[in-house]
């Protein structure tokens, strides 16, 4: 099928909305009589539009709107709660791991190879965390849609 040009699309869409000016209507009718492609598009899209225009969504019960804000508020509160829990858990975990590593390294009974292994894991983990955080920070700084959750 031949593609419509930009002007034909604009006039067609305006015609579907009944929003043509007098001059545009004349132009559209001239184009219609000259192009069978445009005529076919006009007829079929008009039919589709006539149907979609009659479709409406069910209206939710009024109580939906009465309780709407309460739902949003609860989510905001829960978000704050999760944030605090996450921060707290991260601190507990970090301190716990630190203490465990420290006690292993300070213990004279711990064999040297184990101390080296624990030290390597701790150092590797620290490098990994710093690397991920730096990458996140750089992405965040350059992302114009940073407020949008993907």
């Amino acid at each position: 099928m031949t593609e419509l040009n930009e002007r034909e699309v604009t006039l067609l869409m305006k015609a579907l909305d009944g929003a043509l000016t007098d001059a545009e209507r004349v132009e559209f009718e001239q184009l219609l009589s000259a192009s069978s492609t445009l005529r076919d598009e006009w007829q079929s899209l008009k039919r589709v539009k006539e149907v979609t225009m009659t479709m409406k969504f069910k209206r939710p019960a009024e109580e939906t709107w009465d309780h709407y804000w309460a739902g949003v508020y609860a989510r905001i509160e829960r978000g704050l709660a999760w944030l605090l829990i996450s921060i707290g858990a991260a601190i507990f975990l970090a301190v716990g791991i630190y203490q465990m590593v420290l006690s292993l390294l300070e213990d004279v009974a711990t064999p040297l190879y184990l101390k080296i292994g624990v030290g390597a894991v701790a150092l590797g983990f620290a490098i990994l965390v710093v690397s991920v955080l730096r990458e996140k920070w750089n992405t965040w700084k350059t992302d114009k849609y940073k407020e949008v959750k993907r």
Partner: peptide, 19 residues
């Protein structure tokens, strides 16, 4: 189907009203 109203004003039923 549950989201679509039968009535053009969005009242109860399930499909758009016909004219």
């Amino acid at each position: 189907s549950c989201a679509l109203a039968e009535d053009v004003d969005g009242r109860e039923p399930r499909e758009p009203v016909s004219t």
